Simulated scan of single mutants.
Amino acid sequence: MRDAPSFDEFYRTTSVRTLRYAVAVVGDHTEAQDAVQEAYARAWRRWDTVAAHPAPEAWVRLVIGRLARDRWRRLGRLSNLLRHAGPPPNAPPPSENTVVLITALRALPANQRQVLALHYLCDMSVEAIATETGVSANTVKSWLARGRQRLAAQFTEPTTTNLEVRDA
């Protein structure tokens, strides 16, 4: 049976130092935090063995070193793959219609924009949208109707009337 108080004491006395070590080895603070967390989780799973080790902190550092090497290997393979694949092709600029539509959608309230996107872009039913958003189906129908009306109003061109132009 694992001795939780001794592991807690071990963690309290070594974790700050171990994180500093991991940041130096891994080179990225967030990745180092992940490596330290994983190393301590492995130590906890084997705490009876690790606690009996002559240098438990060195055991944790060894795990961190191995995790760091694995990370560097993965990054190296990814880098190699990207180098051989070459850069991705340039994406074409958005069409004028896309820009106009996105601008019109941004003018809508967030709830209407969300249900319109779920309904028309994700092909979701009103009931599925209601479940995902946590509102009633009638509320979804209302937001869809209002969103459509607002979009339609933005896309209808105002009618021009015969205005008199007066010379000054």
Rank of each mutant, 00 (worst) to 15 (best):
D3P: 03
P5F: 04
F7K: 00
E9K: 14
F10E: 04
T18M: 05
R20I: 06
R20M: 06
V23W: 02
V25A: 07
H29A: 14
D34K: 03
A35P: 00
Q37L: 04
A41H: 02
A43V: 04
W44L: 04
W44E: 02
W47A: 04
A51K: 02
A51W: 01
H53W: 09
H53K: 08
E57R: 00
A58T: 14
A58R: 08
V60A: 04
L62A: 15
V63C: 06
V63P: 01
I64E: 03
G65M: 03
R66P: 01
L67Y: 00
A68S: 04
R69N: 08
R73T: 09
R74L: 10
L78E: 15
S79K: 11
S79I: 10
L81M: 15
H84G: 13
G86C: 04
G86M: 05
G86W: 01
P87L: 14
N90L: 15
P93M: 08
S95R: 02
I102P: 09
T103N: 15
A104M: 07
A104W: 06
L105M: 12
R106G: 03
A107K: 14
L108H: 03
P109C: 00
A110P: 10
N111H: 15
Q114A: 13
L118W: 11
H119Q: 09
S125C: 02
S125Y: 03
S125D: 04
V126G: 01
A128D: 12
A130F: 04
T131I: 12
G134M: 05
G134L: 09
V135W: 04
S136Q: 07
S136C: 05
V140G: 04
S142D: 13
W143M: 05
L144D: 02
L144Y: 10
A145I: 13
R148Q: 14
R150G: 05
R150H: 11
L151F: 01
L151T: 00
Q154S: 11
Q154L: 07
Q154H: 02
E157M: 09
T159L: 12
T159P: 08
T160F: 15
T161C: 14
V165A: 13
D167V: 14
D167M: 13
